[in-house]
């Protein structure tokens, strides 16, 4: 097991209204640690020195909740494709390396503290239409509605989106199109979601605009950085669905 001596240059910002700056810390980490465990080591060190630990978000630490938001050496969730920060291991870094850690940057994701940003704008997009309306009651048998295999698979792929916001963080336009399109595709392709598609897509697009997210110019940085490999085809689906809703819907 090899030990890495690292310089962690991390963004420190007390609260949103304060100006932030980078601070550099020396950390010893072993190669089997995840990136978050390395930050835990740094924080224990800071607590021992009676300093303020670095605030960062995490929950599941197994790549499914989407909270572990940070930009590592210029890439949301770090250099490894299809991997969240919590699943990124230190063996992908070199001994003596300086690692720059920044919060997700987008105006719709204001910094709360250090690496923690407020992603409630995503919640509001979901609240505007990212659901299907069903009556409560007994659970319906899963196989009672036939779903074509292709559709089921495309929908399932889109459903893999964990709402982490890396797409917005990666996008030079601060656009939320990949996230919103993943939700619209996921629900719109299924018979249960299709009935509300027109209403859903218009409400979600309106909310996305209202939150101040940028417009998509098809750069593809989102697709490259998405830990769940959500594809740009979903954005094309969203645009089609939106046009259909506006020009043919009620």
């Amino acid at each position: 097991m090899s030990i890495l001596n690292l310089n962690i240059k991390v963004w420190r910002q007390n609260q949103n209204s304060n100006k932030g700056q980078f601070e550099t810390y020396q950390v010893q980490a072993n190669e089997h640690m995840s990136f978050l465990e390395m930050l835990d080591v740094l924080n224990e060190q800071l607590v021992r020195e009676k300093k303020d630990p670095v605030a960062f978000e995490h929950d599941c630490r197994e790549g499914i909740c989407g909270t572990c938001s940070m930009v590592i050496n210029g890439q949301p969730h770090g250099p490894l494709a299809a991997t969240t920060t919590c699943q990124l291991h230190m063996r992908f870094f070199k001994d003596g390396e300086t690692i720059v850690v920044e919060p997700f940057r987008a105006n719709a994701f204001p910094v709360i503290k250090d690496l923690v940003v407020d992603r409630a704008s995503f919640d509001r997009i979901i609240q505007s239409g990212g659901f299907i309306s069903v009556n409560t009651g007994q659970a319906v048998d899963g196989n009672s509605i036939p779903i074509e295999k292709n559709r089921a698979e495309k929908s399932f792929e889109a459903a893999a989106c964990i709402g982490c916001g890396a797409c917005v963080a990666a996008c030079p336009n601060g656009s939320a199109m990949l996230f919103t399109s993943a939700k619209v595709t996921h629900l719109g392709l299924l018979p249960q979601g299709e009935v509300e598609e027109d209403k859903r897509v218009q409400a979600m697009v309106a909310q996305m605009d209202k939150e101040g997210f940028g417009m998509c110019s098809n750069i593809g940085a989102c697709e490259a950085e998405c830990p769940k490999e959500i594809k740009l085809e979903n954005i094309a689906f969203l645009n089609r669905s939106y046009m259909k809703a506006v020009f043919t819907g009620e």
């Binding site: 210029g74 940057r105 987008a106 719709a108 601060g174 593809g220 490259a224």
Partner: peptide, 20 residues
């Protein structure tokens, strides 16, 4: 201009492989 404002602060490290 709108997009640049939506982005706000730019990253200290700019790295975006796989984009033109």
């Amino acid at each position: 201009r709108f997009n640049s404002n939506s982005k706000g602060t730019k990253y200290a490290v700019q790295r975006s492989p796989e984009t033109t």
